[in-house]
Design a protein around this nucleic acid. Sequence first.
DNA 1: ATTAACTTGACAATATTTGTCAATTATAGC
DNA 2: GCTATAATTGACAAATATTGTCAAGTTAAT
Lengths: 105, 105
Amino acid sequence: MKKNNSIGEILRKRREEKGLLLRQVAALLDVDTAILSKIERGERKAKKEQIVQLAKILELNQEDLIIQFLSERILYEIQDEELGEKALKVAEQKIKKNNTKQIKD
Amino acid sequence: MKKNNSIGEILRKRREEKGLLLRQVAALLDVDTAILSKIERGERKAKKEQIVQLAKILELNQEDLIIQFLSERILYEIQDEELGEKALKVAEQKIKKNNTKQIKD
DNA sequence: ATTAACTTGACAATATTTGTCAATTATAGC
DNA sequence: GCTATAATTGACAAATATTGTCAAGTTAAT
């Protein structure tokens, strides 16, 4: 019951499924293979634009990939923060509060 | 029934309660008053270190202030992102999953 | 109108992120 | 063993974002 946890694993798995080389995908992305290699192994973060492109290149669901991407970005922000989980919950509450406010508009 | 929504409002309210000037607090923080002014009005983000110092200077609950600070940082990351709320939820799930994993350690 | 507190915006300094490149390691086929 | 190709690594450079300073401009009270 293995799961794709990180966006990097998702990307690598799909790239290999499609039989593409780092070099090939990197060329389409317009970066050096070194970067894509690092993204796939989680050593570097991708830019959102690159995630969008990768979804297209690898024929992955774009929304799912972006959600994955954003969630990693969020987690990165609160890494090593003891109060991170509480902050996440507060952030959610704030979003919800704003949503209900939108009724006015 | 007014609420303190932003960290800036909290800081300003408390500073005024204590009868302190921007200049005075800024000096303790070791930045120009311009920065503190901007932080209080939400035009700039504070650094975490500054939040910690401000909690001390203004005698505010440090944990609460940090939670507030982190939640704003999180929200900043997903601003303008349609999928932000979903990403937040995914981020929470991931944290929880990691928490239960910790049992092994 | 003078003064003190605060605000604003242009710019500089710093820090972080993103990228390139060359050298190295890994892997597969002779 | 060699040789080829793919991928990884790390040092460095370029680009971007953040944080800060400063001086000029408001605002508000006297």
